[in-house]
Deep mutational scan, measured.
Amino acid sequence: FSITQFVRNLGLEHLMDIFEREQITLRVLVEMGHKELKEIGINAYGHREKLIKGVERLI
């Protein structure tokens, strides 16, 4: 299971460039909250919320 699959499953594949540029893996994403996601350029609250909720389902 990769970050690419995870992001695609959430319908947020347009954010993949950010994850690749910042070298974010699923392991790193698990540790990130709204503040960190915003810092790397994910400005939409809804997108950040989707990512965080998606990660919570993985754990």
Rank of each mutant, 00 (worst) to 15 (best):
L15Q: 01
L29I: 06
A44S: 14
R27S: 15
G54P: 00
L15D: 00
T4H: 14
L37P: 00
L26Q: 02
H14F: 15
L15T: 02
E20L: 13
L10A: 03
G33L: 04
E13M: 10
I42K: 04
G33M: 04
V7S: 02
S2M: 09
H47Y: 09
L29N: 00
G33D: 06
K50Q: 10
K53A: 10
Q23T: 07
I42P: 03
L37D: 01
L26F: 11
F6H: 01
R8T: 15
K35H: 09
V55M: 10
D17K: 12
N43F: 12
L26W: 13
M16K: 08
G46I: 15
I18K: 04
L58R: 03
R8G: 08
L51K: 02
R57N: 13
L51V: 08
S2T: 15
G33H: 06
F6K: 00
S2Y: 08
L26P: 04
M16H: 06
G54T: 05
L51Y: 00
E56L: 15
Q5T: 11
H34M: 04
L58M: 12
K38C: 09
K35D: 11
E13W: 10
Y45D: 09
L58H: 07
K50E: 08
G33N: 07
I42R: 02
E39F: 07
E20R: 12
N43L: 13
R57K: 13
M16D: 04
L10V: 06
M32S: 04
E22I: 06
S2P: 11
I24V: 10
R8F: 10
R8Q: 12
I3D: 02
L10N: 03
I52H: 01
V30D: 01
L26I: 10
L26K: 01
G33K: 08
R27E: 15
G46E: 15
Y45H: 14
N9V: 10
E22A: 09
A44D: 15
H34Y: 04
L29R: 02
I24W: 03
R48D: 05
G11A: 05
G41P: 00
G11H: 09
I42N: 03
K53E: 08
E56N: 10
L37H: 02
R57M: 13
L58P: 01
Q23R: 14
K53M: 09
V7K: 00
G33A: 04
I52F: 02
H14I: 12
I18P: 01
L10I: 08
F6I: 06
Q5K: 09
E36K: 07
F6R: 00
E20N: 11
V30E: 08
F1K: 10
I24G: 01
N9C: 15
T4D: 12
Q5N: 11
L58V: 06
N43W: 11
I24T: 05
I42S: 01
E56I: 10
